[in-house]
Every structure is written in structure tokens, then in C-alpha cells.
Design a protein around this nucleic acid. Structure first.
Lengths: 149, 149
DNA sequence: CTATGTGCAAAGCGTTTGCGACGGT
DNA sequence: ACCGTCGCAAACGCTTTGCACATAG
């Protein structure tokens, strides 16, 4: 099931993007970072560190777990990737190339991207609390795969 | 900062509520569960297990960490409490006595309850994915306490 | 050439589990 | 009295860290 179009991005294109992001953030461009960035761009399943690491078995067999961890933390801090909200203990990440929201299946735990017809506005009254930078919609429910079996 | 009114609930009232919930779910009513339930009802800071456990130092000094853990898992499964979505690794819980949403401060990590003028509707198109049971709004930003200093 | 990033291994910390004792129904 | 629950301690799994080497700028 795919409810958002993640336009395919070429290899070179993604490297260019990351190059820009890294120079902006003062980070070096390394093979590992490129590989992780590309994997995140290409994936729409909001991978865990483990999923990512497995995916590199072929393309980059010697990359270590801690590099994946460290890179994701680095990316998050630099605003290149974001850690996805879950009520799970395992961290999951995404690169938000297109503004979107999430559908979360309470059975299988899958997270599906979703682009609503209208993006939610910042609700009135929030200014009493502070400066809102972002409004996220999280729709909980059971996906068809799970309700079917 | 308080953006929602958590009407104060008396001791007996909360025990009654839990009693109902437990009998519905086939759970026994124990001192520990009552204490944890009350603490969740009384608190609006979406406590972690650690925060809860500390809070019992006086009222119930011999309660163990694992009981707090187990009880919260039990409560979640029974729909008595819910685990709050965070991009943090530590689990946080709440009893949602009033339907509300969350303001999350990206600096201090605080979670503040928030009741918008209008509750968000299930966005059109979600039925293609599955059955939505709940729409959560998460507003990210920086709270006044943090922007002030 | 220098500062940053990586790999390795080991530690850290939140969370879960097995088991015997306890307590609600 | 019976079955669920609790407390204890030990295990578990995800994540982080210290250090020496490699690499980008």
C-alpha cells in the first residue's frame, strides 16, 4: 500500500543533495553517510537501524552498527533526517523529501506515509504554549493487510 | 503551562473507575495498580516509569520497578492507559480521561496536553489503507520556558 | 596536514522474564 | 484454595562510548 508518491531520485541526485546538506551542517561527505542517506531516501518503510544495517550486507558489508547509529543521530541533529514518532522502543528514521504524515497500524506496527488533501494548520491557542514549528498527524488504526490476514 | 483542564478526580472516584476497567478486562484490583492508576490520572506530565517509581517512594516504598513496567504494559493492552508517542527511547504513559492532543517541546522534551477548538477529522483517503481508530495531532516546537531560558 | 569520521569491543541503560512468595476473589 | 500478581535478580536488546586507525577537506 502506498498513499504518497516518493518520486524516484537518481543516485547522483541524492549524492548532490546530501553534499549540500553536509556542507551546510559542516559535516564530511563519507561513503557510509551517502549509503545511509540513499537508503533512507529510497525506503518508505521508516527503517530501524537494524533494517538499514542488514540492507548494507551487499553494498557495504563492512559498515558497523555504531556507524549507522551515529550517522542517524548526526543526521537528526543536522536536520537531514528525522526520528519518527513511535510508541515502540526501537528507533525509526526517515528523510522527509515530501511533506507528509503517518498512518500507524496497531497490529503490525507498520508506518505508512500519507499526504492529506489539506495539510493541518497550527491550531489556535498553541501560541500560548510556545512556537510551533510543525504539526504532525498520526492516524492510528488497523491496515487492510492485518484486518484481512 | 496548562492548556487543558484535567478535572480533579477524588480518590474514591478513581478507584471506582479502575475497578470498572479491571473487571471489564478481567484484571485483579491491587494496591499497586490503584496507586499507578491514580498517579497517571493526577499527573499531566506523561511520566516515565522512572518518574512514577520515584513518586511512590512515600506512598508505596516497596513497589518494584518491574511491577510498574508490567502494570503499564498490562494497562496499555487493556486500553486503560496508553503509551504516548515520543521520539525518545524512554516510554511515557498517560490515562486519557479527556480527549486531547500533544504539544512537544523539542528542547526540553516536555509533553503538554492540548485541546483544540475542533478535533481533527479522519482525513479522506485513509480508508484505502485501513480502519482508522484515532487521529492524533502532535505539535512540535519550542515552549516558552525554553525560549525564555 | 589536521580535524572528523569509522570500526571494534565493551559498557550503559531501559526493559523484560523466570521463579518463588504473596494476595485478591 | 486457586490463579493472577508481585518482588527480586538476572538476562536481554537496543544504544552509546572510548580508543586507535583511516579518511575527507
Amino acid at each position: 500500500m502506498k498513499l504518497s508518491d516518493k518520486s524516484d531520485i537518481s543516485m547522483q541526485e541524492s549524492v548532490k543533495r546530501l553534499e549540500k546538506e553536509c556542507s551546510r551542517a559542516g559535516l564530511k561527505l563519507t561513503h557510509q553517510r551517502i549509503e545511509i542517506y540513499r537508503a533512507l531516501l529510497a525506503s518508505d518503510e521508516h527503517p530501524t537501524v537494524e533494517m538499514l544495517h542488514k540492507r548494507f550486507k551487499e553494498t557495504m558489508p563492512r559498515i558497523s552498527f555504531d556507524t549507522v547509529y551515529r550517522t542517524l543521530v548526526t543526521f537528526s541533529e543536522a536536520g537531514i533526517a528525522r526520528r519518527v514518532y513511535t510508541s515502540d522502543s526501537q528507533a525509526r528514521y526517515e528523510v522527509e523529501s515530501v511533506r507528509h504524515h503517518h498512518l500507524v497500524c496497531s497490529k503490525c506496527g507498520s508506518i505508512t506515509d500519507f499526504i492529506p488533501a489539506e495539510d493541518p494548520e497550527t491550531p489556535a491557542g498553541v501560541e500560548k504554549w510556545g512556537d510551533a514549528s510543525r504539526v504532525c498527524l498520526v492516524v492510528e488504526g488497523v491496515c487492510h493487510d492485518c484486518s484481512a490476514g
